[in-house]
Computed example of a mutant assay.
Amino acid sequence: MTFYRGRFAPTPSGPLHFGSLVAALASYLDARRAGGEWRLRIEDIDPPRCPAGAADAIQRQLEAFGLHWDGPALWQHDRHDAYQAALTRLVDQGLAYPCSCSRKQWRDYPVYPGWCRQGVREPGRPVAWRLRSDLGLRPVMWQDRLFGEQCFDPADLGDVVLKRKDGLWAYQLAVVVDDADQGISDVVRGFDLLDNTPWQRQLQHALSYPEPRYLHLPLILGEDGQKLSKQNLAPALPTEDEAVRPLLHGALTALDQAPPAELREAPVAEQLAWAIDHWQVARLSAEPHRTHGADAALPD
C-alpha cells in the first residue's frame, strides 16, 4: 500500500470507555503498522448530546494511552457548508428529498416506507431530508477485512435521514463528506456500524467520492452481555499512568494480539511499540469479546 490515512471519530457525548479504547487502538495500530497517518475527528454535530468539556476529556484520554494523532483535530460543528453542498448535489440528482413524516406515523413498518418520495405528505410541517435508497448504487457490495464479502440492498434498510427536522446534520452524510475531505483511505470501527456501510457506499458513489477500505471490529461486551457503551454506563477510561498500563494491555488482548504478560506493567510507549511491530489483522476473531472484572478490561 502506497498511502494510508486512518481516523478515530468519537462523539463527545461523554468520556471514552474500554470499548472506545479497543476501537481507537485498532485504528491507530493499523495506521502505524502501514506507515500511515492517523487523524482525529470530533463528531459533535448533535450539540444537545455533547456536554461541555467532553471533547477535551476524550483528547486527554487518548493522549494518556499514547494515541497521538496527526495534524489538527477536525470538528464537525465547523462543517455546515460542506454538508450543505453535498446535500444540494444529492437533491439535484433526485437522490434526496424532504420528508414531513414522524417516526410515530410509520412505527408499524420495519423501515420508513418512503411516503414523501413523490412530494411532502404534509406541506407546512418541518421536514427532514432523506436519501432515496431505492435509487443509485444497488446492491452494495464490499470486502470487509475481517468479516469478508458483504452484500446489501440499501432499499431493504430504508431511506436514511441526511438532515434532521431540527436542522442538525445526520451521521450518515457527515461521515461520508468528512472521510472524503480528510482523504481517509481506511476505516476501522465497531461491528455495530457495519450495516451503516451500505448507505455510506451509496453516498460515496453518488458524490463521486473514493471508497475507503473497511475493517469492522468485533464488539466488546460487558459482563451482562450488552455492548459496552456510554448509554450502558460503561466506566470511563482513566488517565493515571498506573491504571492506563494494564488497560492498554487488556485492549491488546481483546484485539487478539496476544501481548506478552510482562508487558502488562510496561510503559505505554513500550507497549505501543511492541503492538505496532506485531499488529496482525489476521489474528482478529470475528466473535464478540466479553469483559469481566470491575475495570471491564480483562477479556475472557
Rank of each mutant, 00 (worst) to 15 (best):
D134K: 02
L137R: 14
M141V: 15
M141H: 09
W142Y: 14
Q143F: 04
Q143H: 12
R145D: 02
R145A: 03
R145N: 00
L146Q: 00
E149K: 11
Q150C: 11
C151L: 15
F152A: 07
F152V: 02
D153M: 03
P154L: 02
P154I: 09
P154A: 07
A155K: 13
A155R: 14
D156S: 13
D156Q: 13
L157T: 03
D159L: 04
D159E: 12
V161A: 02
R164G: 03
R164K: 15
R164F: 02
K165A: 13
D166C: 15
D166A: 09
G167L: 11
G167H: 08
L168C: 03
L168S: 02
W169I: 07
W169E: 06
A174S: 12
A174H: 04
V175N: 07
V175T: 14
V176S: 11
V176N: 03
V177F: 06
D178L: 12
D179W: 12
D179G: 08
D179K: 05
D179R: 04
A180C: 14
D181S: 13
D181V: 10
Q182W: 02
Q182E: 15
I184V: 15
I184W: 05
D186T: 04
V187H: 03
V188D: 00
V188M: 05
V188P: 00
R189E: 01
R189F: 01
G190I: 00
G190C: 04
F191M: 10
F191H: 14
F191S: 05
D192N: 05
L194H: 09
D195P: 12
D195N: 08
N196W: 04
N196H: 15
T197N: 06
W199V: 05
W199Y: 13
Q200R: 12
Q200A: 03
Q200V: 08
L203H: 11
Q204E: 15
Q204M: 14
Q204V: 12
H205V: 10
S208M: 11
S208Y: 06
Y209V: 08
Y209F: 15
P210A: 12
E211V: 11
E211G: 10
E211S: 13
P212W: 04
Y214V: 03
Y214D: 01
Y214L: 02
L215F: 00
H216S: 01
L217C: 00
L217K: 00
I220W: 02
D224N: 15
D224K: 02
G225Y: 06
K227W: 06
S229H: 10
S229T: 09
Q231P: 05
L233Y: 07
L233G: 03
A234K: 13
A234Y: 13
A236Y: 09
L237T: 06
L237W: 10
P238F: 05
P238L: 01
T239Q: 12
E240S: 13
E240G: 10
D241L: 14
D241V: 14
D241W: 00
D241M: 05
D241S: 15
E242T: 13
E242V: 11
E242F: 12
V244D: 07
R245V: 05
R245M: 06
R245T: 08
P246Y: 01
P246I: 08
L247M: 15
L248F: 10
L248I: 09
H249I: 11
A251H: 05
T253W: 04
A254R: 01
Q257H: 07
Q257A: 02
Q257L: 03
Q257Y: 06
A258C: 09
A258R: 14
P259Y: 05
P260Y: 04
P260S: 07
P260H: 09
A261E: 11
E262W: 06
R264Y: 07
E265H: 12
E265V: 06
